[in-house]
Write a protein that binds this DNA or RNA. Structure first.
Lengths: 255, 255
DNA sequence: GAGTGGTCTAGACCACTGA
DNA sequence: CAGTGGTCTAGACCACTCG
């Protein structure tokens, strides 16, 4: 408000030195993110109004606004005119299948049925540990499940989660919970999936995969390997999905 | 500047009626887009400065800025501090393979080799016509080509383009041109690919596809069907790619 | 140093929501 | 009606590029 930021800005911490220039609104974005990460405002809750945050941080409303603009662009928050700004959540209808790019070829309805096949604790293999930035042998939770559309199996998912973050996760817990899996993770374990990277390949169905998905062994399947990240780019899920694409497809938008 | 927009704003045309509210910056965004579409500023060229546009449209710089912000977010323009704002192009190094999501598993180099297999004019089949919003039997240009990485075939592309837009496109033209295909389309035909939708499936290699890609018949391949759009959401390309994914993968980011 | 995009402010008013 | 996000302005100054 008084002295504009030079090189580092007036909000520079005690460790200030030769770091890159960071505008005020970006520093404020970090502060807001920290409060979300530490649970001051939980998924689905409102955050303070732009004017209140502006006063708190001693900047103008426009600066706070620009910070929130970026958070909204990254889907960390959702703005609702007249109501407020809310921490993003996987719970709501509109954002439920935010990460699922599968669509029926005929554009037909949603509402996939879930069938839990397996949930157990195990030790991370080398590649799973690597993907989750754990040490080999660290405890992980392993989940296997099936997604069906109109009784037809469509997706076979294998999921690995860091054991330390998902202590009480059990088959019963998963089976009982009605909403999407990520909503449970948010509510019960405080783990928010913010972003993910996927690697997609075509593979031949192994005998066991073929059985679960009701296709012939060797049939082509889409292999979707997802790494989900939370605050600070920390990986918190590895998921390998096998998709039947005879009546569905993976849709993507390029910009 | 004088009277703020109400319902439709002061830039409302003569046809103003019960349309939805459109803020000033969005109306200006449309005006800028129209000038790009009509070729007043061509791909790679600078557009006028924010202050100049502000004066031209009789609004403040901040309003023009917000319009350009959105255009930049949609990759229609690129901002360069100290230099100006440029119409996006597929010509430059950084944006050459903007739509190609293929990556080598070992993260190795770029530089795919292209091999043109076929280029001829034909009549659109029903499904091609539908995808390109043409009538069945309308003229289209058909292109088949191979992409190779380290002498290994990786992608077999089949491409259909509206015949009316690509009158002089020939095998020779394609073979001579060194840069990316989309750069040629921009420069020679004034067709800019702004956005695309892809549908991805796993399929079994047909005998002929298997031959081109040097895999066994029936081997799993990634099928990538792309519809590319230009201004006004007009489809101007249909592309069916078959990707070998034994040493490469399709990468995607979910937000 | 002139010109461009980028940041920041202070204040006004509009559009939308809900009590 | 008050409170929230959304738009718009006018003006100041900073960061970057290039001649």
């Amino acid at each position: 408000m008084k002295q504009p930021p030079t090189r580092k800005g007036r909000m520079a911490g005690p460790s200030a030195s030769s770091e890159a220039f960071s505008p005020l609104y970006r520093q404020i974005k970090v502060l807001i993110t920290q409060d979300m990460q530490s649970g001051v405002w939980k998924p689905g809750e409102v955050i303070p109004s732009e004017f209140e945050l502006a006063e708190r941080f001693k900047v103008s409303q426009g600066t706070v606004r620009k910070a929130i603009d970026e958070l909204a662009a990254e889907n960390l928050v959702v703005r609702r005119q007249g109501k407020g700004t809310f921490v993003a959540t996987h719970t709501e209808q509109t954002t439920r299948y935010r990460f699922l790019r599968l669509a029926a070829d005929d554009g037909s309805g949603r509402g996939l049925e879930r069938r839990l096949l397996e949930c157990r604790r195990m030790r991370a293999s080398v590649d799973v540990a690597h993907a989750l930035e754990l040490k080999g042998g660290d405890p992980v939770v392993f989940v296997r499940r099936l997604l069906l559309d109109l009784q037809q199996p469509v997706v076979l998912d294998e999921i690995w989660l860091p054991g330390r973050l998902f202590k009480d996760l059990s088959a019963q817990r998963l089976a009982e919970y009605k909403g999407p899996m990520y909503a449970l993770f948010e509510a019960a374990f405080g783990v928010q999936m913010l972003r993910a990277e996927e690697k997609i390949r075509a593979v031949a169905a192994t005998p066991t995969a073929a059985e679960w998905l009701a296709v012939a062994p060797g049939a082509p399947l889409l292999s979707v390997e997802r790494r989900s990240l939370t605050y600070g780019e920390r990986p918190v899920e590895l998921r390998r999905g096998l998709y039947r694409t005879d009546a569905h497809h993976y849709r993507n938008e390029l910009n």
